[in-house]
Write a protein that binds this DNA or RNA. Structure first.
Length: 430
RNA sequence: GCGAACGUGGUGAAGUGGUUAACACAUCUGGCUGUGAACCAGACAUUCGUGAGUUCGAUUCUCAUCGUUCGCCCCA
């Protein structure tokens, strides 16, 4: 039979890699908990309109990267390309804003889907972890979210993360700016690329992202957003920058930072990191403030701020920088039965160790030489070997061997757990 | 969506238009039927991503296809 392979742009996660994902995700969750965020699990499937209205029609994600299809009931569904819009839908539908203190602070973790050309650190199904803080417009909200993101990255051991930050201004700033751009580009658009022509219609702000060399001179002379930012927005941004300085979070202002999702306003930011080997994974995390997203989805006028990390990129970077060496999962005890009649005895011992002692215990099932069993114990990173054979069965005892020290003792079954507790403590002290 | 490179076992990889497809690591077996990282001897690719073509013959040449990687675009 022919082997069926995985779908392009997807990848299997198993063995050490799965350990790495567990480690990264649980660290992100526990730090978010420290910041008083709560977990939330929106569905993978949403109505297409959640993203069309939420993420925005002019965004590349909605225009060409979504997995959209009709289901058997004729519903227009989309596999989520990001979390934020779905979470806003959840908050609006369940009226969380009415029963919770504001801001509502949520974190999420799970797969998202984008139909893109796969490349290094870029998949069609990948995992994101992120947070949203919804319903409070204070600049300190933005600060808290940025601090959380930065703390997570440094807790993972990443040093020299670059935080790029910019402000897009409030709605009126953006309206004014958009009009200015429209006016400016209307006389040039005929000579620009096809992409820009459609951007001109959908969202002239996105023309600024164009990388076509012929268009650059025109774009370089376009009005600058800095000139259209309202005084209030400028003050808001300054407050945030000041707070980052006090909290010792290094940042770089990047006026070219626009972000590809339409819902952003005011503060936007990205985290960049180059592995020590020099591999460039692009942004490993990004986020920003959004003023009108909830309204777009039919909810009240509540702003929010959030970020998301690409787990794949972060795991790759950690692997490149050898920051995953200590997370190898270990077995506490490896039981070695000698001979057929020892197999059942080994199971009994295992029950005692697992249920009675709480030790992660594995048993060798193959009938093989003791020497081989020791080899396997070493491969499994076991701390102790427990050897059981005819002699031990007859005396209700086992041999415990410390694999690192190469010392062994014989103990009775009754003392097994206590003795192992002692040995573990000794090992920990060193 | 556009341009380019690559695709040999569990892994890292040599190699050639003709038949045993190197070598190394890992794994397994035995030497050693109750005590380990050593040593010795074996085993391990119905086959060189997949399909078609050229050829007496293709893993090696051509085309297609799939996949990965690089650049662009975009993003996490």
């Amino acid at each position: 039979m022919e082997i069926i392979k995985n779908v392009k742009g997807t990848h299997d996660i198993f063995a050490e890699e799965n350990d790495a994902y567990d480690y990264v995700e649980s660290l992100m969750k526990s730090i978010s908990e420290l910041y008083a965020f709560n977990g939330v699990r929106p569905p993978v499937l949403e109505y297409n309109s959640v993203f069309v209205r939420g993420v925005g029609e002019s965004s590349d994600i909605v225009r060409k990267e979504m997995y959209t299809f009709p289901d058997k009931g004729g519903r227009d569904l989309t596999l989520r390309p990001e979390f934020t819009a779905g979470i806003m839908r959840l908050v609006v539908q369940n009226k969380l804003y009415a029963t919770s203190e504001l801001p509502i602070k949520l974190y999420y973790c799970g797969p998202v889907f984008r139909y893109e050309r796969p490349q290094l650190g870029r998949y069609r199904q990948f995992n994101q972890f992120g947070v949203e803080s919804i319903g409070n417009n204070a600049p300190m909200n933005d600060v808290e979210v940025i601090v959380l993101a930065y703390t997570i990255l440094s807790s993972l051991g990443l040093e020299g993360v670059t935080l790029k930050i910019n402000t897009l201004g409030d709605e009126s700033s953006r309206d004014n700016y958009r009009n200015a751009l429209k006016k400016y580009f209307s006389s040039h658009i005929g000579n620009m690329c096809e992409d820009c022509k459609s951007r001109f219609e959908l969202n002239p702000l996105r023309i600024l992202d164009c990388k076509v060399p012929e268009d650059r001179p025109i774009i370089d002379h376009a009005p600058k957003i800095g000139d259209y930012i309202s005084i209030e927005s400028k003050q808001r941004f300054d407050t945030i920058l000041e707070a980052l300085e006090v909290l010792q979070i290094p940042y770089e202002i990047d006026e070219g930072l626009v972000r590809g999702l339409d819902y952003y306003s005011e503060t936007v930011f990205e985290f960049h990191y180059k592995s020590k080997k020099g591999a460039d994974y692009g942004a490993i995390g990004a986020g920003g403030h959004y003023g009108k997203l909830m309204q777009e989805l039919g909810g009240p006028e509540l702003p929010g701020v959030g970020f998301s990390f690409g787990i794949e990129r972060i795991v790759s970077v950690l692997k490149d920088d050898e920051l995953l060496e200590d997370i190898k999962k270990k077995v506490d005890v490896y039981i070695m039965p000698l001979g057929e009649e020892a197999n059942l005895y080994a199971q009994e011992i295992a029950v005692i160790l697992r249920n009675g002692g709480g030790y992660k215990t594995d048993i060798c099932f193959d009938k093989t030489k003791l020497g081989n069993m020791f080899k396997r114990a070493t491969n499994k990173n076991a701390k102790f070997a427990v050897i059981v054979g005819e002699e031990e069965i007859n005396t209700d005892s086992v041999i415990i061997k410390d694999l690192a020290k190469q010392e062994q003792i014989t103990v009775s079954i009754d003392e097994l757990v206590n003795k192992l507790d002692e040995l573990m403590d000794e090992g920990d002290e060193e």
